[in-house]
């Protein structure tokens, strides 16, 4: 009986210490988000804002460095998390990138991977005090074009062709929300329309296991389980836009197949 009690106590103690580690890692990441920005990056953002011509580019690069450091912190503080990123991903340029969506970490991971990146962000984030300003200055697109967002959307779409031609990438999570069961949900067609409009290749990326580290609905990172986060190129679609322009349905079907669903 006493042995069982002791075993229970040891189990509870182990669980408590593990939860403390999760809490600590999450806290360290939040400290980076707040103080890393305030103490280090805010000055660079401020300087970038002064450049009228290349503000977007400088903001995108700063975002990329900021989140790259964030993932370095995650790797150091949570050594059981392994990250395997296909080396060819860093070479992607001038493309529309579509990706499955499992966790809030996914957009941060893609921002960290691409120095020149734009994406579509939920409109409400544009109204946030500091974050809203950064995503606006970075040239990210609002998900909605209603009311005040119409001008922003038009401005971004007017310059999208030049941006993509200059080597920039546009990454989009066509499901629009995180998948709770790993299955691919209904795909919004915006990414395919933009790719077709500007005659750009579509890269299909597959992200795995970010949800195991930062599970939807949970506040703390789950750093205790051994986990391999991976990003791979599932397909590269280069349609013959001039001679055989694909239908949006064709593109959707191919992306869905690449993401592992028929």
């Amino acid at each position: 009986m006493a042995e069982m009690q002791s075993s229970n106590n040891s189990f509870s103690l182990r669980r408590l210490s593990a939860e403390c580690i999760d809490c600590l890692v999450t806290l360290v990441c939040w400290i980076w988000f707040i103080f890393g920005f305030l103490l280090f990056f805010s000055w660079f953002y401020l300087a970038a804002a002064l450049f009228r011509k290349k503000t977007e580019l400088y903001f995108q690069r700063l975002n990329s460095y900021f989140y790259a450091i964030f993932f370095c912190i995650v790797r150091v503080t949570a050594p059981r998390q392994r990250m395997v990123i296909d080396e060819k991903i860093a070479e992607i340029r001038s493309s529309v990138i579509v990706c499955n969506h499992l966790s809030y970490l996914d957009p941060l991971l893609l921002i960290a991977l691409f120095r020149q990146q734009k994406t579509i962000v939920k409109s409400r984030f544009f109204k946030m005090p500091v974050f809203g300003l950064i995503i606006r200055k970075s040239g990210y697109l609002p998900a909605s074009s209603e009311g005040q967002f119409a001008a922003m959307m038009i401005k971004q779409m007017d310059t999208m062709g030049v941006y993509l031609k200059s080597g920039g990438n546009l990454f989009i999570f066509p499901e629009g929300t995180r998948s709770r069961d790993g299955k691919i949900g209904k795909l919004n067609k915006g990414a395919f329309k933009i790719a077709r409009m500007h005659k750009r290749p579509i890269y299909v990326l597959k992200i795995c296991n970010t949800d195991k580290l930062f599970t939807p609905g949970k506040f703390f990172f789950n750093t205790r389980v051994k986990n391999e986060i991976s990003v791979t190129i599932a397909d590269c679609i280069v349609p013959d836009y001039h001679n055989h322009p694909p239908t949006i349905a064709d593109l959707e079907l191919r992306v869905r197949a690449a993401l592992g669903e028929k």
Binding site: S144, S145, A150, I154, M157, D158, G190, K193, I194, M197
Partner: peptide, 25 residues
């Protein structure tokens, strides 16, 4: 018809070509 803001912007571009002038923002 699932016509969204991206379609609207693409359609405006095509209307500009038909009319022979550009729309202001």
């Amino acid at each position: 018809h699932g016509f969204d803001s991206i379609d609207a912007i693409e359609l405006l571009g095509k209307i500009e070509l038909i009319l022979g002038f550009s729309f202001t923002r």
